[in-house]
Design a protein around this nucleic acid. Sequence first.
DNA 1: CAGTGGTCTAGACCACATG
DNA 2: ATGTGGTCTAGACCACTGT
Lengths: 244, 244
Amino acid sequence: MIPPRNISASKGPGPETLGFRDVKRIVLDRVQDGTWPPGSLLPAETDLARDFACARTTVNRAMQELAAEGLLERRRKAGTRVRAAPIRQARLTIPLIRNEVEATGAAYRHALIDRDRAPAPDWLRARLALPPDRPVLHLRCLHFADNAPFAFEDRWINLAAVPDADAADFAAIGPNEWLVREVPLTNAEFSFRAVAADPTAAGLLGVPTGTALFCAERVTWLKGIPVTLAAVFYPPSYRLTTRV
Amino acid sequence: MIPPRNISASKGPGPETLGFRDVKRIVLDRVQDGTWPPGSLLPAETDLARDFACARTTVNRAMQELAAEGLLERRRKAGTRVRAAPIRQARLTIPLIRNEVEATGAAYRHALIDRDRAPAPDWLRARLALPPDRPVLHLRCLHFADNAPFAFEDRWINLAAVPDADAADFAAIGPNEWLVREVPLTNAEFSFRAVAADPTAAGLLGVPTGTALFCAERVTWLKGIPVTLAAVFYPPSYRLTTRV
DNA sequence: CAGTGGTCTAGACCACATG
DNA sequence: ATGTGGTCTAGACCACTGT
């Protein structure tokens, strides 16, 4: 009936209408201050919409986002509940190493240590579910921040998935940057762990053998076809951080 | 995600109406198959809605989600573009250690190694931005999987934020589980790194001193007030994994 | 069966950034 | 100035699931 006029948190005296962000904030507050304790049942969307004097759609969007964030649990007919144990989830942004370095204000460069084309070794075939005798490219790179070693990268590329990689000049452009440009839309699996530096990695990174390194490993697929497996090793100063 | 109610992909001859999931899939396909290469400008929502024979709202939801997932970049007036370098982001689910252990089929238990109440040391006050002379609880726990050490936890709790912690029986319930139950809705910052095992951690985990340990550190706040800082150390077999 | 969330629609106004 | 995305609305129908 009446055209909405929406302003949310701030401006002067009285907000006219609540937006979905306002609704999220109110619900979050009520959960945090104990109005709606963990496990409790929230009013139905219709009722909340009436209370908040907004459309059900608006409440729905707010509640859906809170559910996606792990705070609420919703089931048809059963209604919406505050999760007894909220799901903690962090959104991890995986940057290019170049960006990681440049974010610190340092100058980035990389060096190609080693490049080898060969049939995939058995462990790699198993890991990527590759058929026998697939040629792969094995690359090892060192990444620098202001000419100090920043990370060591050990990467395998499935040439069946990315034939062009065979002709790419990975001394000029890092393999990861090349892949991101060339095969931008892959699925990926990341895993993180701590490993002791082997002599090679230790030497390249300038740390004693056996030093605790942070290792970020990633496997990517393009529409189900394995593209690359990469392990990146960082010296002990490195931290991977996320805020929620 | 769970299949919606809207029929489309597959079923015989003519889909009735496209839902936002269908639109997402189509757009994703067109990006992946090169119809809309990285950097290119997509048609406006209005046009897409016409092409897809659905409401603009539906297109909008699809595009907003794709943008949130890092695939697209949207700006008013400028339109929607395929990101040149798609943002890689992983959703990391942080489980309770109990759940981590039980997911492997092992039996979980924990032991309280040490409990100490004292004013916060300076480094901790600095880290959490605490005023002087705040009492904190310092706890150290060992977590077991089938009676083998699984992880070592070193935790500080701000008693000003959670006075009840002083009376809690952390031998009966792990500090993390207690906090999740008692102070469920905190903001958090996670960071991950590799560290060499000090003699204490090494002894408790049954590994040599200096072993590379995976360390997950978390700081949590409740409405801006620091609640706890915890560091959990895992032996080298541990991996933190995510799929995207 | 009935109540709740899930989604779509058509239309509207607004904020913003570009040209 | 104008076009594009951002959001709200009111109403509708459907899908799921607990009673």
